[in-house]
């Protein structure tokens, strides 16, 4: 089984981060508090990931339970990512795209990318993340004239409440930690290094972006999706607004995240059912995800606690199985 480098693993996980950062909604909380919460969450998750990355792989019945839980989690996270993306696209570009078509196109493309293998996805993720960061840097230059450091208001009411809310949200929004445990740990030569690179870049990216949003948008940054507001505000002599470019990289990162989850799902499934064709997971998941996504897109946005619960269940199942295998 081919392995990927720690930087590639970090890039693949950063795709989740970029996609989530673009669609992030602070729900009225201060962006400075959100940045602080993200910083703390990254530190906490990195510390948690060190012992978890060192656990040996589970075998026997425990291993099968672990694979089942992991496959279930991947399926759930994949569905959520696609449906959330379709929902957010509706919010940002109303009337342009139908949610069903978005989910179907994205799921099909993710299945194709997944069939190309983890190495291909990881290498493509490196390119996607670098291009996205370059675009963000260009956007920052375009938004430079609107920066006012006085808008970075730390003296907000209920700081503790805001911090704890954002901290819970930061953990909940992280599908990467289970990904690190389920997939990257086995397919990366140095998973701890991958985690260190990933969490460092993630923390930096979130803090810089949220600080930029806060200093440009002020209190308005707490309403709606601050990244989109910044993209609409930023302006250069060639590009009048950055929304479309942001959407391009958002789609690309979501697609690669979905492909990574699909690969992860396929691998766990093949552990449960040895001899399964590598295309079988894609063939099974595609209609299932599409159907679920279509139904889901009709409902309101999910509470952040759902992915949090899933992450928790995944991590707990992993730990439990490892402990059993040791016994």
């Amino acid at each position: 089984m081919s392995r990927i480098s720690s930087y590639q693993a970090a890039a693949l996980m950063l795709c989740f981060t970029v996609a989530r950062l673009i669609a992030y909604r602070p729900e009225g909380d201060s962006l400075v508090m959100a940045a602080a919460a993200e910083l703390l969450a990254c530190l906490g998750m990195f510390l948690v990931s060190i012992p978890l990355s060192k656990l040996p792989s589970a075998g026997g019945f425990g291993g099968r339970v672990m694979s089942f839980a992991a496959a279930g989690y991947c399926l759930f996270a994949l569905t959520l990512i696609l449906a959330d993306f379709a929902d957010a696209m509706q919010y940002s570009f109303p009337g342009f795209y139908s949610p069903g078509a978005i989910i179907l196109a994205l799921a099909a493309a993710a299945a194709y990318s997944a069939s190309m293998g983890l190495q291909g996805c990881a290498r493509a993720a490196c390119a996607a993340v670098i291009l996205a960061l370059l675009t963000f840097a260009l956007m920052t230059l375009g938004a430079c004239e609107g920066i006012d450091p006085e808008r970075l208001n730390i003296a907000v009411p209920d700081r503790g409440g805001q911090l704890s809310r954002q901290l819970t949200g930061a953990f909940a929004r992280s599908a990467e930690l289970p990904m690190l445990l389920i997939l990257m740990r086995r397919r990366t030569a140095k998973p701890i290094r991958a985690a260190a690179v990933y969490f460092a870049v993630r923390a930096l990216l979130w803090c810089v972006t949220l600080a930029l949003c806060a200093s440009v948008l002020g209190e308005l940054g707490g309403v709606g999706e601050p990244f989109w507001s910044l993209a609409a505000f930023a302006k250069t002599s060639v590009v009048e607004r950055f929304d479309a470019l942001v959407m391009l990289f958002w789609t690309l990162c979501t697609l690669l995240s979905a492909a990574a989850l699909l690969i992860c799902f396929g691998e766990r499934l093949s552990e449960l059912l040895p001899g399964l064709s590598k295309y079988a997971p894609a063939a099974v998941i595609l209609p299932a995800v599409t159907a679920y996504g279509l139904i889901y897109a009709g409902f309101s946005r999910p509470a952040a606690v759902i992915p949090a619960a899933a992450s928790g269940i995944g991590a707990a199942a992993a730990s439990f199985c490892h402990r059993r295998s040791r016994v």
Binding site: Y97, A109, Y112, M116, G120, R123, A127, M247, L252, A259
Partner: peptide
């Protein structure tokens, strides 16, 4: 599909080339 379509196609092309 605008930039959404371009991103989807780009993702597929990138993974195809990178997997070789």
């Amino acid at each position: 599909a605008g930039f959404f379509g371009i991103a989807v196609v780009s993702g597929m092309i990138m993974t195809n080339a990178a997997s070789m």
